[in-house]
Design a binder for these strands. Structure first.
Lengths: 138, 138
DNA sequence: AATTAAAACTGTAATTAGTACAATTCTGAA
DNA sequence: TTCAGAATTGTACTAATTACAGTTTTAATT
């Protein structure tokens, strides 16, 4: 089910973000994919619908959305940063063959690990690296 | 305790890597720090001892060592890749204030999570993001 | 010790992701 | 309708990393 512009607008407003048409398009794009796209990938795909969109807007909007916690950044390898609208908490599997990123279960207990005195974690990322099914078979 | 050149040579040979003086210096550097340095940081620090060292060699050596599993890459944010000689398995805490990376305990059970059918993980990374003690206090 | 082929190293040039910034456009309140 | 602030745009720039060609080193063989 695809989120309506009104729903996307609400999410933005809830986080104190002014809902411009570009921001709605970018967040909407992230909400309807599980592909963990890069900024450039988002830019290229949205260009068809919004021919005046600029790369700078995509980058700055993504930074804004990450800063206010609406979307999360996926830094799974040293390559381009990817972005994720996390419906539910999950971990990521990075296939070193095809470079795709898959959502997998978040292991239990990760969030409650003992950190050194005085350290407080605001978020946790778990990445598995290996071969996905398709790459395993070939 | 600092590893001797002979010990470093052994580690390299065990992994099928020809122990050149540059490779010994780079691996030795990583073995005696817990700072998770970037390639450029390693380059700058080693330059004092090896004035003819080139950045390209540092990058290619690090790629080589990561590929053969001697050192691990730490991609904790979108910035430069960092490198780690992991004596024992551990997770990483990334301070969003000072940008330092700290070793912390690896939570139990992370490695035994249920992955989708046909997926096999070769390695696992766990990153916590937040404020370290010093940044918390200031 | 001399020869030599392969491997490793070096330095420069190129590539790529991402940011800075100034100019333009949009928006919504007065 | 006016206008100020916010958002967007496009270009120029920076920084991390890689490609590549030429040089040096290594180590085996004669």
């Amino acid at each position: 089910m695809k989120a309506s512009p009104a729903e996307i607008t609400d999410i933005l407003r809830c986080h104190g973000v002014n809902p411009s048409s570009q921001r709605i398009a970018i967040l909407g794009y992230l909400m309807q994919t599980r592909e963990h796209p890069t900024a450039d990938c988002i830019y290229r795909d949205l260009l068809a619908d919004k021919p005046t969109l600029s790369r700078t807007t995509v980058y700055s909007t993504l930074n804004l959305l990450v800063d206010c916690g609406v979307v999360s950044a996926v830094d799974v390898d040293g390559e381009s940063r990817r972005y994720d609208y996390p419906l539910t908490p999950h971990a990521h599997f990075h296939c070193t063959g095809c470079q795709k990123v898959f959502d997998v279960d978040m292991p239990v207990g990760v969030e409650s690990v003992m950190l050194p005195q005085g350290f407080t974690a605001k978020s946790t990322s778990v990445y598995y690296h290996g071969f996905c099914r398709d790459c395993m078979e070939n």
